[in-house]
Amino acid sequence: MGRIPASYLMNRAITLVLTIVIAATLIWLIPRLSPVDPAEIMLGRMTAGAGTVEGSEQILATLQERFGLNDPLLVQYAKYMRNILFLDFGLSTASFPTPVSTLIANALPWTIGLMLISIVITFLIGNLLGALMVWEHTPRLWKVAIPAAMVFTSIPPILSGLLLMWIFSAQLQWFPLTGAYGLTVEPGWSWDFAGSVLHHGFLPALSIVVVTFGFWALGMRGLMITVQGEDYTTLAKAKGLRPRYILYRYMIRNAILPQITAFALKIGLLIAGQVLVERIFAYNGMGKLLYDAILDQDFPVIQGVSFVIILMTALAVFIVDLVYPLIDPRIRHEAA
């Protein structure tokens, strides 16, 4: 497919770094605009647990010292940026003294597994259905059924989650109610464990797919209508090509291009969107970690999770930018 020009690569790499730096700064800045002092919250939690805490003044001072809250803001910022370079987000205030990076490392694989599976399935199903809504050879039944299925898009994911739970877990008992894997299996690289994970992940993934495929389907529908009116589609038909070949190689192939960019942007949003789904299914992923951290006002964890979300989005966009010239020859031309 030819080489990607170096100038294009440089351009994208600079954008990537800039995005991450700006995002990291914002993440650092926003909680500092809040009047809450994390050391006081910790102390408050200790007080709530033990009734009274002896030498609370001193503990507060120690905590503030330990968190570096007494340093000038610029020093705090510099330290934060240096730490972030090594993915060190400090210690959690709620699960003190566990490092935030450990919490994230434990939660991330679950979310990535669930998220990637569900988002890829959603993307494929959504775009295919969207394309079929426009294609002239789609069976009539499908043309009626697909828009009808869009109703699910308007259901909030928590509701669809609860509904699926009620049908498949409570009534039919096909799938477990909660958790990321069964209590009886030992986590590790075994078939039992993998089966258990898939079994547990199915409903959360389904609840995400059901409510989000409409986003892709509607977007794809609009793009397909444009492509259907393009002269190259007319010429493809005039060439006597087989309808399916035209659908895949001429129509979807062109209509999918903007959707791929949207896909990259969605990756970051999805962790945020998954918060409630993970919460309902008691799935120990990033969403649940973020949810709990917000309830506990656990700033370091909120910062860490937000940073990871942004990092993933920026990386996804970067990767798509790199892949794009390979799937759309016109981009290579413009970049050169």
Binding site: D231, T234, L235, A238, G240, P243, L257, D328, P329, R330
Partner: peptide, 24 residues
């Protein structure tokens, strides 16, 4: 009819600029 197109009757459309699939 599909077999007739191009083999028996070929059609050269109006929009010269956009008549070819841009990714092929």
């Amino acid at each position: 009819m599909r077999r007739v197109r191009l083999r028996r009757i070929s059609y050269i459309p109006q929009g010269a600029m956009n008549s070819l699939n841009p990714v092929m």
